[in-house]
Design a protein around this nucleic acid. Structure first.
Lengths: 165, 165
DNA sequence: ATTGTGATGTTATAATATAACACTTATGAA
DNA sequence: TTCATAAGTGTTATATTATAACATCACAAT
């Protein structure tokens, strides 16, 4: 696993939940049981997880959780900057640093399915500068880099085409 | 409209179709009537267009076009590098330079709905260099910058929050 | 206690995308 | 030319992702 600029997914689940609690306290938001459950499951997955996989995980044999329940929690967590949506995967992943939520990018490995959250002020500045040159007022940047992570190509250099799972 | 590094959507439809013909000839691919129709409609839209909007446009009152028909054409055009999919919009837009299809990014305006295709070797290099630092083997980069384009904020500087349409 | 807001439950449906299989057409080898 | 093959299309069905609408509930602030 490459060393990361940011804390990454191994950043333990409990820490993330504690951070989220603190964040919500600070901003007067409520981390309700539903929202907490969704956030915990997102952190329990070591790769981006899809909404309907969350629904399945939350559904016991008797009590089926409905899409709206999960999507509402996801909307809340996104609004609070506690998670990211990876558009190129239609999947969700925890945010390691809710207070500097922007300027992140993701390294998405086709082999192991992980999406490492990274920050680079240099890259963020380069992007802002490009936008400025075009006289474009930037409000959100999506940077998703797909390929193969260090761990995977070191282990299986000949299997560069392998897919996750 | 900001001046662009690349030819942009005003790059006329006929030119794009001619380029596509040439491209297919060169690579021994077939730009069938279906594929050509889809490509033409994509270029006729001056903003990224959704698959189901293409289906509607292609469906006369009698002959309804089915999703698979359009999605197959889209798959072909994507594979040939003749169009891009904008993941953050689930929409498709023409590619101005099929032979240097990668290293592009998009400036997506919330006000007018356009997505300007841009290239910046500098930015592309910065991204490659970031990936390299993490020992990540890059295969595809998605860079989608959302905000407000020059034309829109010059015309309606007070309406920065306005949505397209 | 009351009341208003935010959160949830529930049903339904919209929007996006693919699978599977039958049939047709183009192409190239015999 | 004809046949075999591969590529493309038509069609039906279904999977996947996401939202709308409305009723009810829970909480917190008066």
């Amino acid at each position: 696993m490459p060393s990361s600029h940011c804390t990454n997914h191994h950043h333990c689940q409990e820490t993330a939940l504690a951070t989220a609690e603190a964040h919500c306290d600070t901003y007067g938001e409520r981390l309700t049981p539903n929202r907490r459950d969704v956030l915990r499951l997102i952190w329990q997955s070591h790769r981006p997880i899809k909404a309907y996989d969350l629904i399945d995980l939350m559904s016991a044999q008797d009590a089926k959780v409905k899409p709206a329940t999960v999507y509402r929690a996801l909307d809340f967590l996104l609004a609070q900057g506690l998670i990211h949506k990876i558009d190129s995967l239609s999947a969700f992943t925890g945010c390691s640093h809710p207070n500097q939520h922007d300027d992140c990018y993701f390294l998405i490995c086709h082999s192991c399915g992980t999406a490492q959250e990274c920050c680079s002020p240099l890259l963020a500045d380069a992007i802002k500068s490009e936008a400025k040159q075009q006289d474009f007022k930037l409000t959100r940047t999506v940077l998703e880099i797909a390929g193969q992570c260090a761990a995977c190509h070191e282990i299986t250099p000949h299997m560069a085409g392998e897919e996750a799972r």
